[in-house]
Every structure is written in structure tokens, then in C-alpha cells.
């Protein structure tokens, strides 16, 4: 069934695929922090960020369209969140009237800034998750001292989201094969029922899984066997990444 969107990991042999998950997690976090903290008057830096993302995308040997496709699916969310920003004045603002609406210049700038930052951050996250196995990412997080319980929750989510999708699909299939042209209101009632059933099923499944875990000796502690090995190439990559990112940032700030 349709799992591709979540099950996004692509097997690959590129250098990016082989980087240590800790390195990739660090690059992602550091990159996102840098992007988020860049002020508007240092906008030249955004080209640098774009360059870094593109280099990494090129290194991954995954088609750029694959990344863009995913980005396109997520972008509407950012747009929806930020779309009213241009209509609110930011400090002393110059307004322009379009019909009955007024648009503010600072507002538009802010809107653009939010969108550029969000797209860059998303692009980076997509890049990393597409080229890293979920299991390895979780192990990387464990090494970063993310609480084990949090990791367990993420891993359950990852495991059961597919089951949930399948369950919804099966229910939709059962519905579609039995009904044929239902008035909208009745259809809504059916969907409401489906959601309720899904909720109860999920709840009961959760209970059964807990029983299965308990039967296998679970006492609230998560034990894992972690094996990651940091290679020389990882250190080199980390160094290059830091120089590439930090150098220009320092330069930009010194010049101001």
C-alpha cells in the first residue's frame, strides 16, 4: 500500500548515505540553527545556505526532483501559516492599498524571510531523512543523549503509522465496495463512525502491544544494542561543513 511518503529512506551508495548518522544529525541541527538566526540584512548568506544544500543534494545522487516533490508536498503548510503576515504592519510601515486590502512592506519582507528560512530548513531535513535509515537516525539520536523513552515513542510512531494507514485504506475499501453514491451528509456520518472505530482500534492495539512488550520482560526501560562507528571521512566532512558554514557567517557579521 501507499507508504512511500513516510517510508522515505532510499537505499543508496553515495557518500552522503555513508556518513555517520551523528554527523548528519549534527549538520542538520547546526544548519537549521544558522538559517533561523540569520537576520534580514545578512540575506547574502541565504545563497551560501542554498549552495550547501545543493552540494549535499548533489552528493546524495538522488534526483533533485525527488527532493523538490517532497518539498512541494510540505510547502503549503508553511504558506498557510505565514500567508497573513504581509497584511499586518511591522513597526512603522509603508502600506500599499490593493483594492480593499492594505499590504505592508515590512510585512512582505518578513513573509519572504519566513518562507525562505522554512524552505531551507525543510530541504535540509528532507535531505537527511531521505538518505538515512530510520533505525540509524534513532541510534544517532540515542548517542546524542535524547531520552530513550522519547526514542521509543518515535520508533513506535514509525512502526505503526504504516499499520494505521493500511487500516484506513482497508476501511475505505470496505466502505467503497459496499456503498455507491451516498448523500454528502450520510457520507460524513460514515466517516465520523470510521474515525471513532479507528480510534478504538488504535487504543486496543496499543494495549495489546503493551501486553506483548510486558510478556517479553519490558519494565519501562528501553535497552538497545548500539553500534555506530565514526570514520575518518566523517571527521573530514564535519570539518569542511563547519568551515563552509562558519567562515562566511563570521565574515558577514564582521563586515557589518
Amino acid at each position: 500500500m501507499r507508504h512511500e511518503f513516510f517510508d522515505h529512506h532510499r537505499e543508496g551508495n553515495s557518500p552522503l548515505h555513508h556518513f555517520d548518522p551523528r554527523l548528519k544529525l549534527f549538520m542538520m541541527l547546526f544548519f537549521i540553527a544558522a538559517v533561523v538566526m540569520t537576520p534580514l540584512d545578512k540575506n547574502i548568506l541565504f545563497f551560501l545556505y542554498l549552495g550547501i544544500v545543493l552540494i549535499l543534494a548533489f552528493m546524495s545522487q538522488v534526483s533533485l526532483f525527488h527532493f523538490l516533490g517532497k518539498l512541494l508536498k510540505l510547502y503549503p503548510m508553511i504558506f498557510l501559516i505565514s500567508m497573513f503576515v504581509p497584511f499586518f504592519p511591522d513597526g512603522e510601515d509603508i502600506s500599499h492599498r490593493i483594492g480593499f486590502l492594505s499590504i505592508y512592506e515590512n510585512g512582505v519582507q518578513k513573509f519572504l524571510l519566513i518562507n525562505i528560512k522554512a524552505v531551507l530548513a525543510l530541504f535540509m531535513s528532507i535531505l537527511i531523512t531521505t538518505t538515512t535509515d530510520m533505525m540509524l537516525l534513532l541510534k544517532g539520536m540515542e548517542k546524542f543523549r535524547v531520552p530513550k523513552l522519547a526514542i521509543a515513542i518515535i520508533s513506535f510512531m514509525y512502526r505503526f503509522i504504516f499499520l494505521l494507514i493500511d487500516e484506513v485504506e482497508r476501511m475505505m475499501l470496505a466502505f467503497q465496495s459496499r456503498y455507491f453514491r451516498l448523500p454528502v451528509l450520510e457520507r460524513l456520518a460514515v466517516f465520523a463512525n470510521m474515525i471513532a472505530v479507528l480510534f478504538i482500534r488504535t487504543f486496543e492495539r496499543g494495549e495489546r502491544i503493551y501486553l506483548a512488550m510486558e510478556s517479553r520482560g519490558f519494565r519501562g526501560e528501553v535497552h538497545t544494542l548500539t553500534e555506530l562507528n565514526w570514520k575518518k571521512t566523517d571527521s573530514t566532512a564535519l570539518l569542511i561543513f563547519l568551515i563552509l558554514l562558519i567562515g562566511p557567517v563570521i565574515f558577514a557579521f564582521l563586515n557589518s
Binding site: R208, M213, R216
Partner: peptide
């Protein structure tokens, strides 16, 4: 006592088989 449930989806809750199978022995320390 080890129980294998009727529905395997209740029994396999880890991302990979290795994790799932090692879950019990790891809990046995």
C-alpha cells in the same frame, strides 16, 4: 512463559526484526 499472539502485528513493534527479536533477551539483561 512466552506467548505468541494471534496477530503478528501486535508482537512486532520495533523498526527492524533484529530489534524485535533482541527486545526480550535485552530485557533479560
Amino acid at each position: 512463559v512466552g506467548i505468541v499472539f494471534q496477530n503478528p502485528d501486535d508482537q512486532l513493534f520495533c523498526p527492524t526484526l533484529f530489534e524485535d527479536i533482541s527486545f526480550g533477551p535485552l530485557n533479560q539483561r
